[in-house]
Amino acid sequence: MRSHPLTASGLSRSYGSLEVFTDVDLAIDRGSKVVVLGLNGAGKTTLLRLLAGLDAPDTGEVHPGHGLKLGYYAQEHENLDLDRTVLANMKSAAPDLGETDVRKVLGSFLFSGEDVDKPTSVLSGGEKTRLSLAMLVVSSANVLLLDEPTNNLDPASREEILAALASFEGAVVLVSHDEGAVEALAPERVLLLPDGVEDFFGRDYLDLIALA
């Protein structure tokens, strides 16, 4: 039996009288890639926030497995310390990594030379996205929860980010409107919201991604 670093059972969430989803179960296998699909308002971001432990479900539970280390990417870049430089943010995400290695990873996320000494507060939205994702990739996270990670990215940045995600060895749960991002991740499974139906991922689902 494959071990599950993260499982959830019976998750429900409402906002006032609006029921977002009810009784959703999910089991993330070690190293698995899962894409969450659903129309706007189906609760995709809400589900990731529940899995990340940032919000509490109305019913049900999230069960962290043994050794779980979560990395969560939100569009608000909540993992960045705006008062620190690019380099200092990266070092905080991977304290055991030497400076040369940290700079090498930053280079692969298109931060080179003096860029790494910029205060994070002056970065553009796309640069903050790149830094935020670089920090997740170097952290010791074994499950990444990614909410629209390719928004705000120019084509060159997007290509680098997708290559990094494709080579990430841990599990990934992805919410995205970007067909190319889903194809790069090559998910094995899809979770459809709001019904919580799990299925094997097939190319038929690519048509849903742009709509979602």
Rank of each mutant, 00 (worst) to 15 (best):
P5G: 03
T7W: 03
S9A: 11
G10D: 02
R13M: 09
R13E: 00
L18Y: 11
E19F: 00
D23K: 07
D23P: 01
V24L: 11
D25H: 01
L26C: 06
A27C: 03
K33W: 07
K33D: 01
V36F: 07
V36Y: 06
V36L: 09
G41T: 07
A42I: 04
K44L: 10
R49A: 15
L50Y: 09
L50C: 09
A52V: 11
D55M: 06
A56E: 15
P57D: 14
G60W: 06
V62D: 04
P64T: 15
P64H: 05
K69P: 00
K69C: 02
K69D: 02
H77C: 09
E78Q: 13
N79T: 00
L80K: 14
D81H: 04
L82M: 08
D83K: 12
D83N: 13
T85M: 11
V86N: 15
A88H: 12
A88W: 08
A93D: 05
A93W: 02
A93I: 07
A94K: 02
P95C: 04
T100Y: 00
V102R: 02
V102A: 12
K104D: 03
S108R: 02
F109M: 07
F109A: 05
S112K: 06
D115A: 10
V116F: 01
D117E: 14
D117I: 12
T120G: 00
L123Q: 11
G125Q: 10
G126W: 01
T129Q: 12
R130Y: 05
L133H: 02
A134Y: 11
A134R: 09
M135K: 06
M135W: 00
A141Y: 01
A141C: 05
V143P: 11
D147Y: 13
D147N: 13
P149A: 08
P149K: 01
T150Q: 08
N151Y: 10
N152K: 03
D154Y: 02
A156W: 05
A163I: 14
A163N: 13
L165E: 05
E169L: 13
G170M: 07
A171K: 01
V172L: 08
V173T: 03
V173F: 01
L174Y: 05
V175A: 14
D178T: 12
G180N: 11
G180C: 08
G180T: 12
A181Y: 12
E183T: 14
E183G: 13
L191H: 03
L192T: 14
L192M: 13
L193T: 01
D195A: 11
G196R: 13
V197F: 03
V197A: 09
E198I: 07
E198F: 08
E198L: 14
F200P: 12
F201C: 06
G202I: 04
R203T: 05
Y205F: 08
D207C: 07
D207Q: 06
I209V: 15
A210P: 08
A210T: 11
A212L: 09
